[in-house]
Write a protein that binds this DNA or RNA. Structure first.
Lengths: 338, 338
DNA sequence: AGTTGGCACTCTCCCGTTGAGAGTGCTGAA
DNA sequence: TTCAGCACTCTCAACGGGAGAGTGCCAACT
């Protein structure tokens, strides 16, 4: 595409993302192209419309980017916007003051993304393919009640109260925990399953069964934590003035099942993904764009952090800030060993 | 108030909560009081308006309950609506299938409340006045990196990674953990603080410092978990058709700080609390009613579960279902020992 | 070739008007 | 105390006209 056409498309996107009003040839001329006449710009706009990058709400209105227009913009025209120092500081502050546990951190990351991008945000907790055991602990609560604590790779803590058929003292439990640590440390659920098969009936087998259950839950179910935040930011945008639009989006966000699927697609995929309007498989997100990136404390443990907003979104700013928060959260997780 | 006036007020509330349309004398006559003429009802309505219980959106519209009208209704006229069996079953299912940890359960409870009341819900995690230590565990991650695990009363698990100045083997840590368990078991942060003062410089003092930090965070910060869900349900209501109304509510819900204050008021207060419209201190909740109840695994550990919706809410149904979920969640927490 | 000013055309949006409908308060009679 | 009748008020939807914004096209210019 010729340079001038690109410049005009870029100008239309920029103008429309800030003003939310269809942009006409005159506005472009006076604000971006003082050396060109509005008639020239009009003919370029007409060609961009023919190419499918722009459209008009009605015959005599200004131009609005189509989904393809936004796509062309993010693929070829977008330059990451530098982040102001006070926004950088804000991100650092929020993440530094975050709670020390995984869930708290994920929520804080989502909150921060929502705040600095002024859109809604989503986040899923980092998770590895298979959960390995780092440490087992057994605590006696009552004679026949044991608290099973599992420390998994990535320092994920899992707990479960187990009602045992036979009583056991804390001393017995401590010995048993030491044994389990020796046999299961660094291993995953398949190893635990093998030990379970071989174990004679009794307390150890009972507890091994629970260990397996917890690991399974942690693998299958740990799609688990998916949070979202900043929905109120969307309400500031005119595209959500009538609430039915928001209703569909909320359905997707609150029905975390959808999100889980969406987010899982990204893991293993490229590092940054932008899904624009009709590219969304979920019909509730028509008119919305989703910007996603991965993050996590290690290369193996990956979660997804993302922004949900109208397709008329300040992509260059959103991407830059999202990635900044993702980097910050990753560092913080590595640091906390969480 | 005379019986007939009460009956008419009740009818207006009932009709308006279901139809969302101001209710006129004719509608009341045909649907509730076939033996009275609409003129008689009109004069009663006029008197109820004089008493401040009803109002009119404009001169020639039907009547709408005022905040005082709703207040009179919930205080004197409301009868708890029986819960259909399939709703009961739904509640049980959702709670039974809930994850085994505290946070998961709180979220699930909020989700269930939102689903069965068709409004937005809020929940804060049960918490006691002072966190007591039940068990301490130390896990060696690296030579100079220790994972500190604290099991608190109510089976709350807290973790923190500690970078120590001196290296320690797992065996040393295990011995130290046993010592800490002995001295701190069943005690709260003040006891830990005393030990910290007396301890000689070294690994133990370092770790005790962290124990105190975690306990403090757990007490002060554990206003912590406040979740909300079901905002999309509000969008079904005509009072939120224009999104500015929702914006204010979302501000309150997402700015968990407000909520924390609101919810904390209830703890120690009566078991059920209904705050209607202008009774709300937070201006963002004008036009909204909040129904709150306490819940928790034990008498000492109390959290708050609540419903947020328009003042035009089916109070008798909401209260019944909210309390059912609160009972269910309490039972489930006690059962899981979470 | 590409660019430009001029011009007719189209469509939205705002605003005032109008008529139908709903619901009220009041009054006089049962 | 209740009730039928009636005039009155106010909203809401539909309609129409005028202003404004922006377009496409065309002929002329560089």
């Amino acid at each position: 595409m010729e340079n001038r056409k690109q410049a005009i498309l870029r100008a239309v996107v920029h103008e429309f993302t800030t003003s939310a009003v269809p942009v006409g040839s005159q506005a472009l001329q006076s604000r971006y192209f003082v050396n060109l006449s509005s008639a020239t710009i009009r003919s370029e706009l007409a060609e961009l419309s023919d190419l499918g990058y722009l459209t008009q709400p009605h015959t005599s209105a200004g131009r609005v980017p189509t989904d393809s227009g936004y796509r062309y913009f993010v693929d070829f025209l977008m330059e990451l916007e530098p982040i102001p120092d006070r926004v950088k500081a804000f991100i650092q502050d929020k993440l530094r003051a975050a709670p020390g546990d995984m869930e708290g951190l994920v929520e804080r990351a989502a909150m921060t993304v929502a705040a600095v991008t002024q859109n809604a945000s989503v986040a899923s907790a980092p998770q590895g393919a298979q959960a390995r055991i780092k440490h087992v602990d057994l605590v006696s609560l009552e004679p026949r009640e044991v608290l099973l604590i599992l420390l998994l790779e990535g320092n994920l803590l899992r707990q479960q109260v187990v009602n045992t058929t036979q009583a056991a003292t804390q001393a017995q439990l401590t010995r048993l925990a030491a044994k389990l640590n020796h046999s299961l440390g660094g291993r995953a659920s398949d190893e635990a399953r093998r030990h379970y098969e071989d174990a004679p009936l009794g307390l150890e087998k009972e507890l091994l069964g629970r260990v397996i259950a917890v690991l399974d839950l942690s693998e299958k179910g740990s799609e688990g934590l998916v949070v979202h935040d900043g929905v109120r930011n969307l309400l500031r945008q005119p595209e959500f003035a009538e609430s039915s639009r928001l209703h569909q989006v909320l359905e997707v966000l609150e029905e975390t099942h959808y999100l889980t699927v969406l987010l899982r697609q990204l893991i293993g995929d490229s590092d940054l993904q932008i899904v624009i309007g009709s590219e969304n498989t979920s019909s509730g997100l028509q008119g919305c764009a989703v910007v996603l990136t991965t993050y996590g404390p290690t290369a193996r443990l990956k979660g997804v952090l993302g922004v949900v907003g109208p397709t008329r979104m300040a992509y260059s700013q959103t991407v830059a800030r999202l990635q900044a928060v993702a980097r910050g959260a990753s560092d913080r997780m590595a640091e906390l060993g969480v």
